[in-house]
């Protein structure tokens, strides 16, 4: 039995090696460049909004907060209009990592599970992708804050 399993593992390894010869390499550098451009572009838009809100008389705190809210709204709207998945297809991580991508990850599943009702459909699925982000964010924050507190002090 152990021999059969070992043989199966070898066969699987051999197959993976053969298959790899036929798999195109992902176009890593073009992908990274596009992620850079899209991510940088969204950040640039964010900076523009911050400047705009500051020009409207808000302090930097208020301006940044409103910028985040505006970008969330833009991400949600573009997802609803079916545009953001195209941005994501082009920009990859450049579309996923900005706060607009966070909005996309919330709206996309919620919209699709809307047909299963408001409670277990839409609402339960709002955070099916973003939930882990929040969970790990809080876990990470607790660990990072506790360690900093313990080592550096308040």
């Amino acid at each position: 039995m152990a021999d059969a399993q070992q043989q199966q593992r070898w066969a699987q390894k051999e197959y993976a090696a053969l298959a790899a010869q036929f798999h195109p390499r992902p176009p890593i550098w073009p992908n990274v460049c596009r992620a850079f451009l899209v991510g940088g572009g969204i950040s640039l838009l964010g900076q523009g909004l911050i400047t705009l809100f500051q020009a409207l008389g808000l302090d930097i705190t208020g301006a940044m907060t409103r910028t985040s809210l505006a970008l969330l709204a833009v991400g949600a709207l573009l997802t609803g209009l079916g545009v953001y998945d195209e941005v994501g297809r082009f920009g990859g991580a450049g579309a996923a990592i900005p706060i607009t991508g966070f909005a996309n990850s919330i709206v996309a599943p919620a919209m699709e599970y809307r047909t299963e009702g408001l409670v277990f459909g839409l609402s339960a699925r709002l955070f099916s992708i973003a939930g882990p982000v929040i969970t790990f964010g809080i876990l990470g924050a607790v660990v990072a804050a506790a360690l900093r507190w313990a080592i550096v002090g308040p």
Partner: peptide, 19 residues
Amino acid sequence: EAAERQYRYPVEFGAQRPA
């Protein structure tokens, strides 16, 4: 659309698909 959300990501989620 029915299969993608069951097997992978929602279709409007902006994930790239590999070759």
